[in-house]
Design a protein around this nucleic acid. Structure first.
Length: 713
RNA sequence: GGCGUGGUAGCUCAGCUGGUUAGAGCGCAGCAUUCAUAAUGCUGAGGUCGACGGUUCAAGCCCGUCUCACGCUACCA
């Protein structure tokens, strides 16, 4: 196995079209930060890299909606991200952005190299082109009449009214949203990465960790859900994947390549290369060589991501790296699952989230409290749940009552008995250990060893990405400190035998330093306060953990005798019920605010002529049979009584209505829609639905007394 | 629909390659204690380990069926 001498830690690039919520932190950033800080404490060479993902159609759309330039949108969110991460203590070595010139160059060079090597397959297809704007149009840039509901401004990929997924060529009267002109079909070329060709080595690499027999990682160290997802894809066979798009906002395909005009790199190619360009920028600023981190056999590349990104980071990006040659492949991808909030999925669109920038305003200087609550309950192996009550309990019962209180009682006693100076002691003085065990000669030494054993447990857990376990071990150290104090009762003992108190208090002070350093990855702000409290030099994350471990092993003190500590001050404070109640109410209020009236209505579509409308034949009809379409989650097969005949219609409403609910409903039918086979069933028309702001669907129903088959106009 | 991952005490979660009475933290009850932010310590009560069936001397852990949650994917005129 190769030796590892440096680590490149990445956290998923956040997409610059909305603020960060606690799910983002719990999913990738906090884990990545904890791990990076931990590695630094063990003296490792670490580059912790991230940046804003600023390209893609979604950002252009948002810009259009808000009547802004895409650059304005990404500037706003990039600034917000930077600020939020910095305030939360996420210790990126470099936080970059994909709109940076360096990134454009880097990703273009990458594409060039792959192209030169002949790794791409070129595929032609017919696509709409706007002759006025002189570019191919992404699906989202084409509007037209929905063939399903006759909604007159359906997008090329989806009709927002009826929710149908569309392909641009299906639209009636397509129109470019850029120029409002009529687009024409033209042949366009795209470059595909033939993932199917890589199946062989990917299989070996994922399942055995080897490439050409060389051990690159250990699959048994990877998380189950990560391996499972990868194997699932591999077993089902991979397919070529387009690496370019016809878009206006993104990284240009190198223009010297024939056919590149108007083409942009696919964001999923562009984004992970952002890790590379960010590393380059960092290296240039810090007198490092970026290639050491990306191209050297003794570097470990670790991607922290959420579970929705697994395939990309475990299969597609590695394929890209390998096709280019010279790059290391990921050593581990410790993807987290998702964090739910108060019993519900976190949802940006439903505004069911705790926004980190708002938290920072509402709860000033409580970054570590949030970091603790998230870390303690991180979705490392399965989805987890965040509740405000849980947050309060974790703060009050664990941070305040256990940790901060332990620290405080030690500092108070030390100041009271020894005027703040670490006491010297007779090594043969005995006392009681945390489990109430009998004291032995030189007990203090063996207690230091025990402390080190805990530290070793902690280190092992941290190495295995078991951060919750590591945090728990630290809290155990704090608990054991409380136990030792309780068992020995120095406040009583001091009246009978002053000498006997000294080894106990000395040991407790050693505990405090271990806690301060060990907690640094989780609670960076508080760890610093602890060091100040102990009047010790600030933690620089340059191998302090190793130094402590070595000393403890040898039975040496890590806080020397006679060292003068600071005066007591509280590390954490209680969070009252009212504060929690206010947050819960704020969250509940978003549920009300997200009701249809508060959701912005879909923009009006462009004007149509009367004749266009008259082309549609709308009829009243009643659903007389309804059943689920097999092998389709969203489809109901409906039989409609249209008065003069019966029709079969397949409709994508199964997730909103059960067959029983649909049965007997009178609906509006678009009767002259061209028939189409869906999942083997011919659908003769389409029923009209209204979509509310919350995404729920309602039938468009004639009032009572309407006869089936009557014409609607 | 296919594939993947999970469903363990009131709550949030651990349980390695199957092995004696299933664990932790919080909450709850009782006792002890006061140095400390009404903090701490000890003891205890709580689980048919999603359901059913199977393999085994032995299953939370293996196999099958089902169910629920989440992710990826297909479908969505």
């Amino acid at each position: 196995m190769r030796e590892i001498n440096r680590y490149l830690v990445t956290a998923a690039l956040p997409y610059a079209n909305g603020p960060l919520h606690i799910g983002h932190l719990a999913g990738a950033y906090l884990s990545a930060d904890i791990y990076s800080r931990y590695l630094r404490l063990t003296g490792q060479d670490v580059a912790f890299i991230c940046g804003s993902d600023e390209h893609g159609a979604a950002i252009t759309i948002k810009a259009l909606q808000e009547n802004k330039e895409p650059q304005e949108i990404v500037d706003t969110y990039h600034a917000l991200f930077q600020d939020t991460f910095q305030k939360m203590g996420i210790s990126f070595d470099k936080y970059h952005r994909t709109s940076a010139e360096l990134h454009h160059q880097t990703s273009q060079d990458f594409f060039r190299e792959l192209h030169k090597r002949g790794e791409f397959i070129e595929k032609e297809s017919e696509q709409y082109y706007d002759p006025i704007a002189k570019q191919f149009l992404a699906d989202r840039y084409i509007k037209g009449t929905c063939p399903k509901c006759s909604h007159d401004s359906a997008y090329g990929d989806q009709c927002e009214k009826c929710g149908s997924a569309l392909s641009p060529t299906e639209l009636i009267n397509p129109e470019s949203t850029l120029s409002e002109g009529k687009p024409e079909l033209r042949t366009t070329t795209h470059w595909f990465l033939p993932l199917d060709k890589y199946e062989g080595w990917l299989n070996e690499w994922i399942n055995k960790g080897t490439v050409d027999g060389e051990q690159l990682h250990f699959p048994e160290e990877w998380k189950n859900h990560v391996l499972g997802q990868c194997r699932s894809w591999l077993d089902n066979g991979l397919h070529p994947r387009a690496m370019t798009r016809d878009l206006s906002w993104g990284v240009d395909v190198p223009q010297e390549i024939p056919g590149a005009e108007g083409k942009k790199l696919y964001v999923w190619l562009d984004a992970p290369i952002g890790y590379i360009s960010a590393t380059k920028e960092w290296a240039a600023e810090n007198d490092k060589n970026w290639e050491d981190y990306w191209k050297s056999e003794d570097s470990a590349l670790i991607h922290f991501i959420g579970k929705d990104n697994i395939v990309f980071h475990c299969l597609i990006f590695p394929s890209i790296l390998k096709a280019h040659e010279g790059y290391v492949l990921p050593y581990n991808v410790p993807a987290n699952q998702f964090m739910n909030l108060e019993g519900d999925k976190i949802s940006t669109s439903r505004n069911w989230a705790i926004w980190v920038h708002e938290y920072l305003e509402d709860m000033p200087d409580k970054q570590d409290e949030l970091r603790y609550a998230l870390a303690k309950n991180m979705p490392e192996l399965k989805d987890s749940e965040f509740t405000w009550k849980g947050f309060q309990d974790a703060n009050n019962n664990e941070l305040v009552n256990n940790l901060a209180n332990f620290i405080n009682r030690v500092v108070v006693l030390t100041n009271k008995y020894y005027d703040g100076a670490v006491p010297d002691f007779d090594e043969d003085t005995s006392f009681i250990g945390p489990e109430g065990e009998e004291s032995l000669p030189a007990f203090h030494d063996s207690e230091l060893v025990r402390l080190n054993d805990n530290l070793l447990d902690y280190r092992q857990q941290m190495c295995k990405f078991d951060f919750r376990g590591g945090l728990k071990t630290l809290m155990l150290i704090s608990s054991q400190g409380n136990q030792i104090l309780q068992a020995n009762e120095p406040w009583k003992l001091i009246k009978e035998d002053e000498e006997a108190v000294k080894p106990i208090m000395n040991l407790m002070l050693q505990y405090l330093k271990v806690l301060a350093v060990g907690m640094r990855p989780f609670l960076p702000f508080s760890a610093d306060k602890m060091m100040t409290l102990l009047n010790l030099p600030a933690i620089t994350e340059e191998g302090e953990l190793n130094a402590i471990g070595e000393s403890l092993c040898e039975g040496e003190l890590i806080v020397p005798v006679a060292h003068k500590i600071g005066t007591p001050s509280h590390l954490f404070s209680r969070i009252d019920d009212e504060v929690i109640k206010a947050q819960v109410e704020k969250l509940e209020a978003t549920k009300v605010a997200s009701t249809p009236s508060a959701t912005p209505a879909a923009p009006l579509k462009s004007t149509v002529q009367f004749d266009d409308f008259m082309k549609m034949d709308l009829r009243a009809a009643t659903i007389i049979e309804a059943k689920k379409v097999k092998k389709a989650d969203k489809l109901l097969e409906l039989t409609l009584d249209v008065g003069f005949e019966k029709r079969t219609v397949v409709s994508g409403i199964a997730q909103h209505f059960s067959p029983e609910e649909a049965l007997g409903q009178q609906v509006t039918l678009l009767a002259n829609l061209a028939p189409r086979k869906i999942r083997g069933v011919e659908s003769q028309g389409m029923i009209l639905m209204a979509e509310n702001g919350d995404g729920s669907l309602k039938f468009i129903q004639p009032t009572e007394g309407t006869e089936n088959g009557s014409s609607i106009s």
